[in-house]
Simulated scan of single mutants.
Amino acid sequence: MTLLEFSFSAPEAPAPGLEVHHPLARRPAGLMREAKVAVQRLKYQLRPDMSPLKVFSPHRAMFVRLPKNASTSLMDFLYPDVPASFLPHFGADYYRRVFPNHFTQYLVFASLRNPLERFASAFSYYKNFSTVPEERKMMDEDLSFIKTMEDFLYWLNDHERLENAEVMNWLHFRRQRDYICDTSGNMIVDMMFPIEDMQPGLKVLGRFTGVERRITRRHASAKTKVGRLPLDRVRDHYGEDTALWNLVHTSKIGFTSRQALRAWEWI
């Protein structure tokens, strides 16, 4: 276990879950996000059966589900009777804004993954498995000339900035930073662990939640050989993610505050 002293640049887009897709979205972005947060709070007050707190509250722990980071397997481990679709891939900043009181009282945790492996897994998902109509149309029609990840990388490299490619704003390609930080780039999750070696993290979760069962990896993707692929710009794009993942992977578990580290050492 280690204390993570790491700073990110500010995310360029709202945390997943806080995006506003509406004709009025051209109005001040902050105002529209606050309106969305208010609507989300009201929805969960009226329909508590749809609220993420339904699964978070029994364990007093909030799971920030990063796509392609063994999140379905972790759902099975923590909430075996809850379908994975019940918890969307929302960022920590969504939970902080929608459930501010619970956010400060619960353990907030996330899993991290080697960014290049995650990128390759995300490409495979979008190319072969996504059922979202807009994504399916773009991959099958607009980008039908892309057959392999090498094709995809050369196409991405033609963009002046990778962020200018629409696909890089899709959930599975977004930086892991976007899921664990607030709008200023401050990490707001309490604990992170790497999916490449989850046992230390699962041990802490088990001691905290009382969950005692074996984890079964679902949807595990094969490792992609990236040695000769033109990945320099992708490496740069995910550079901060890689630096954080290296720290967490080395230490097995990372905490973001001394208070959190001390608290879990006493479990």
Rank of each mutant, 00 (worst) to 15 (best):
M1I: 08
T2V: 13
L4C: 10
F8D: 00
S9F: 02
E12R: 06
A13E: 15
A15V: 00
H21Y: 12
H21V: 15
H22V: 10
P23L: 01
A25D: 14
A29F: 05
A38H: 07
V39W: 07
Q40H: 09
Q40N: 12
K43W: 07
P52E: 03
V55G: 01
S57Q: 15
P58L: 04
H59R: 08
A61M: 12
M62E: 06
A70P: 03
S71C: 14
T72L: 08
M75P: 01
P80T: 12
P80E: 11
D81Y: 07
F86A: 09
F90T: 00
G91V: 02
Y94C: 02
V98M: 07
L107H: 00
V108W: 02
A110H: 00
P115W: 00
L116G: 09
R118Y: 05
R118S: 10
A120N: 03
Y126L: 15
K127Q: 13
F129M: 10
T131A: 13
V132F: 03
P133G: 00
E135K: 08
W155M: 09
E160H: 08
E160T: 13
V167Q: 06
N169P: 01
Y179W: 01
D182S: 08
G185Y: 06
N186L: 01
I188D: 10
M191S: 09
M191Y: 08
P200I: 11
G201V: 07
L202A: 09
L205C: 06
R207G: 10
R213N: 14
T216Y: 02
R217S: 14
A220N: 06
A222F: 03
K223L: 11
K225G: 05
P230C: 07
L231E: 01
R233A: 10
V234Y: 03
D236R: 07
Y238V: 11
E240T: 11
D241C: 08
A243S: 11
L244C: 10
W245E: 11
W245M: 07
W245T: 10
L247V: 03
L247I: 08
H249C: 13
T250R: 12
I253H: 01
G254E: 06
G254D: 07
F255Y: 15
T256I: 02
Q259K: 13
R262S: 14
E265N: 14
